[in-house]
């Protein structure tokens, strides 16, 4: 008789009314039946969060990009305080990452009655590409690089070698904040180095194109800043592009990469590669990353629905062994 997986059995809520329990037969078969029932229940709940209007992401990305462009003449003509411009540009950079991220997962749809994750039309593909490219310009990341490395992060989450975001690991929040800066230093094997390394290892035509785009963006950004600066607009370039990009990237690395995956030594399984945590900064400032487990389980659920999806899925997650104790039982 095969060994009973007590670890699995212990995590199952045996009182849940989800499926007939195959008892007193083979206990392992009973555990499997329960797990299958849990999986079915999980999928049924998750699918309820797939549909919904994604057009606000497209509108926000377009409006954000237009506003960001407008900040240059507004700052140059002294129509806006450079510090205010810097703040607005930083928010646009962060927001752009969020809208671009939906594009990375192909979640944007022309036809809102269709679920994300189902087959895309050509128009859907173009919409995701467009939103992705324009959203990420303020933080100077080519969409192809972001998409390929982000999918690698999902596929190999918390793998020290194959997860391109693993370099953000740090023992505490202060060290993590420091690392957001340190990992951007020219001689450090930080984010840029690891993204390049992972893209080279992929070896696909898409990854090669992404590397070319990365190089073009790197040199293009330098050229654009230099042209703006030497034509007398250095302060505008610094306050609308260079500094907001630094601030936005630090926020993104800390909030979207370090916080939900800390301490990165967790199991690599789909239920264990993120953590559920209570943020001191609140839901909005932490961009809902407390519920990042939902994103890793169902990347096609758009970010604004992760919180609701978490509370709907919480009993299933807890049955699967996810530690949800950091958050209250109900929102």
């Amino acid at each position: 008789m095969s060994k009973i997986d007590f670890d699995i059995a212990e995590r199952i809520d045996w009182t849940a009314d989800v499926a007939p329990i195959a008892w007193p037969g083979d206990p392992e078969a009973a555990a499997r039946t329960q797990l299958r029932a849990l999986r079915k229940e999980e999928l049924a709940i998750a699918r309820g969060f797939y549909k919904g209007a994604s057009w606000p992401y497209a509108v926000i990305s377009l409006a954000g990009f237009a506003t960001w462009l407008a900040l240059f003449p507004l700052t140059i003509l002294h129509l806006i305080n450079p510090l205010a411009a810097c703040l607005v540009a930083t928010l646009i950079g962060i927001g752009g990452f969020i809208t671009g991220h939906e594009g990375m997962h192909g979640n944007l749809r022309w036809n809102t009655s269709k679920s994300a994750g189902k087959s895309q039309t050509r128009r859907d593909l173009l919409l995701n590409e467009w939103v992705g490219w324009i959203s990420l310009i303020p933080i100077v990341i080519p969409f192809t690089v972001a998409r390929a490395t982000h999918i690698a992060h999902h596929t190999h989450c918390n793998d020290p070698v194959r997860d391109p975001d693993y370099c953000d690991h740090a023992p505490n929040s202060w060290a993590a904040l420091f690392k957001t800066w340190y990992n951007r230093q020219p001689g450090v094997q930080g984010v840029q180095y690891n993204y390049g390394r992972v893209l080279r290892a992929m070896g696909t035509p898409e990854a090669e194109a992404a590397q070319r785009h990365g190089l073009l963006y790197h040199l293009g950004f330098l050229a654009a800043l230099s042209i703006l600066a030497w034509t007398g607009h250095a302060i505008a370039a610094a306050m609308v592009w260079w500094l907001p990009r630094q601030l936005a990237l630090s926020y993104i690395r800390f909030t979207f990469s370090w916080a939900p995956h800390h301490p990165r030594t967790q199991a690599k399984g789909r239920y264990g590669n993120t953590r559920v945590f209570r943020s001191r900064c609140g839901h909005l400032l932490s961009a809902g990353m407390q519920y990042h487990v939902i994103h890793h389980l169902y990347p096609n659920i758009m970010i604004h629905k992760n919180k609701a999806a978490f509370y709907a899925l919480r009993p299933v997650l807890e049955a699967r062994g996810v530690d949800c104790s950091a958050l209250p039982q109900r929102d």
Binding site: L222, L225, S226, W230, G232, A234, I235, A238, W242
Partner: peptide
Amino acid sequence: LFGIGFIAPLLIQI
């Protein structure tokens, strides 16, 4: 290149 392309004119203008 960043030093002469961006930092230098930024410092001059500040």
